[in-house]
Amino acid sequence: MSRHIACLSFDFDTWSGFVARGMSTPTPVSRGEFGVIGAGRILDLLGSRGIKSSWYVPGVVIKTYPAAVERVVKEGHEIGHHGWSHVPPAWLPADREAEEFERAVETIRELTGKGPVGYRSPSWDISDRTIDLVLKHGCRYDSSMMGHDCSPYFARRGDKVAADAPMEFGPLTDLVEIPISWSLDDHPHFEFIRSKDEVLPGLSNANAVLENWIADFEYMRRTTEWGMLAYTFHPYVIGRGHRMLILEKLIDELTRMGAVFLTLDEVQQEFRARSAA
């Protein structure tokens, strides 16, 4: 029997991603703070559809907006590790990466009473040490890499990559990788960012993006017996009015197409069971 899964995941970053890139003046901070408003709208929508989702929250955000994050927990959604700050692990020295990772684990434990099952790196850029840290702290899955579009797989560690030599693959681990894609992420489609060095235009037509998101699910339905897609949203992005409308349309259309909505934790459990069968 075919089974096609949609994971709705939310990176609840608020201002942390802007500040990690040096954008700490009042306007970008306020732009991120809108995420608290957006989160409330999203939770209302998910509640009306009876859908559970996965939320990845930096430790600094948990500590800054405890009531907003507590609502996520109270309404039955998964809380995943998303760093202490939103600085990408690949930018951090080893000791600071380890310190921030552990600090975020303890913050989630204080919030939920248990450590996180899943990890998603800030900006989807892990270091060559990150997989070891994820395993050390008991996480069962990662959601930071892009080696497939609609199937989890077991992550490797210790690959050796050089521009002038064939790649040497490292060993497989017991960590399930739940793949993501920038094309299934709201941020690059919608967010206008202007800095001293670059301009990211964003501001795409929302209905055109919705067509892409639905088409990826349709392709998965046609080509796989069992598959999953991880959609990634940011409350300060998707929480704007016209984008909330396409999120609602996405949920309703995927439902019509027979989607099963699961958290990423539920997906990794199902994938492990299938792999062991």
Score class of each variant (00 low, 15 high):
164 D>Q: 12
166 P>M: 08
163 A>S: 08
153 Y>G: 03
177 E>V: 11
155 A>H: 10
153 Y>V: 07
183 S>N: 10
176 V>F: 06
155 A>I: 04
165 A>D: 09
180 I>Y: 05
184 L>T: 08
158 G>K: 05
192 F>V: 10
192 F>N: 05
162 A>Q: 10
176 V>H: 02
178 I>D: 05
163 A>Y: 12
178 I>Y: 03
153 Y>D: 04
172 L>F: 10
184 L>K: 06
170 G>N: 13
181 S>V: 03
162 A>M: 03
190 F>W: 02
193 I>H: 00
202 G>D: 01
198 E>V: 12
189 H>Y: 09
157 R>V: 03
173 T>H: 09
165 A>T: 12
167 M>P: 00
162 A>G: 03
194 R>F: 04
166 P>T: 13
167 M>V: 15
187 H>A: 13
176 V>G: 03
195 S>E: 08
187 H>Y: 15
200 L>Q: 15
166 P>A: 14
160 K>S: 09
177 E>W: 08
169 F>D: 13
165 A>K: 15
188 P>V: 14
170 G>F: 00
177 E>H: 08
178 I>E: 05
179 P>E: 03
172 L>A: 13
171 P>F: 03
191 E>I: 14
196 K>Q: 11
189 H>K: 10
157 R>A: 00
202 G>M: 01
158 G>D: 02
161 V>K: 13
166 P>L: 14
